[in-house]
Design a protein around this nucleic acid. Sequence first.
DNA 1: GTCTATACTCGGATAGAC
DNA 2: GTCTATCCGAGTATAGAC
Lengths: 219, 219
Amino acid sequence: MVNSKIKTKIKTKITTGNRPSAEARILLAARHVFMTKGMSGARMQDIADEAGINKALLHYYFKNKERLFDVIFRDASSVFFPKITGIIESTDTLEKKLEKFCCAYIDMMLQNPFLPLFVLTEANKRPAEFRKKFWRTREQVFQKFAEEISTEAEKKKELNINPAHLFLNMISMCIFPFIAKPIWQMSTGMNDKEFREFIDERKKIIPQLIIASLKKKCL
Amino acid sequence: MVNSKIKTKIKTKITTGNRPSAEARILLAARHVFMTKGMSGARMQDIADEAGINKALLHYYFKNKERLFDVIFRDASSVFFPKITGIIESTDTLEKKLEKFCCAYIDMMLQNPFLPLFVLTEANKRPAEFRKKFWRTREQVFQKFAEEISTEAEKKKELNINPAHLFLNMISMCIFPFIAKPIWQMSTGMNDKEFREFIDERKKIIPQLIIASLKKKCL
DNA sequence: GTCTATACTCGGATAGAC
DNA sequence: GTCTATCCGAGTATAGAC
């Protein structure tokens, strides 16, 4: 499996034995190291160690650090920018849709706690490169959500809400706690278990709050 | 001015002439480079260039990269974790206090747009070091806010609100847009001017939303 | 205090054996 | 496909002149 073809989606291929292939182990290790240290802080040696191979093999599979990073980052982006078509197109009420979205999104971040800071940091560091290499128009989650909310608002004559603010409020409240986790825990004294429970509570609180903001009286 | 004494607060000292001293220029340049590139991405050469001096002088003033970083980061933290005693102790209503807080905090970030991502990233990368070297108990903004909200809630018999969620919601909505700025602009097509106006709107929207969440019906 | 020149270290990348 | 050994550029840090 040489690096000649760039894969668009990472799959952890398994060899005939029970141990993941070297390539799969590299990807797993690279994901972990890049996510925790960032592009500039990550060391090829760390990735090699964690994958249980040596540096030379990294270059055999992925040419250089940048290419390896790109594979990881592209995969990370595709997870971070969710596909909400499924939720949007369902026949649920808006309330139910928001609830499903928050719940699914928070669950995803519980499984990938470093993802938000990783994607946002790297997107900030080189915005031009990000736009060119990683930005997919299809990932414009916001557009669909905005339409959905606008039509919903029109139906109910609650036109005083700005979909942009509403959507940004929602994702802010979902994502930010994961970015601020260490500081928040220092500040409140929460341990990991308490933090986890606290986050779980937010799956209900956030959509409720958003729905409340739709009422004329609130905004 | 040798590096023997560590300053707790950065002041841009001006020499007798009209050009800032070398030390002041270094601090200014270092702040900019560290904030945009992060600790691991920053290059001493870049800082020297931007300050209009050479690398050797950096080491003359600040011994090494880590010490220079520490000075910048300590200063950044003290700005990022706001002193809210002034707002808390005023005789304003809770509503007014929240409004003042959001407004002041958003204004601060408008002036230091890279601050949030910088502080949060570095705090995440080395949480133990962060706690030891930079965390100040006095910065536990949250505690005071929580007490304030609790007493307010008791007065109005609106005990169904959790101050932790309320506070986290508020700062999430204030801070997150600055972290997500490039992605948000790509996603919505906003230019810098529009983004600025959009942010200004939030100074009112966020406290309104928070106040609304205090009502029993909303949460 | 400020510079030039240089030493040293780290880390990404390659050559080549097996 | 995987390894050892090595190269080489980049980047931090220091020596020493002025």
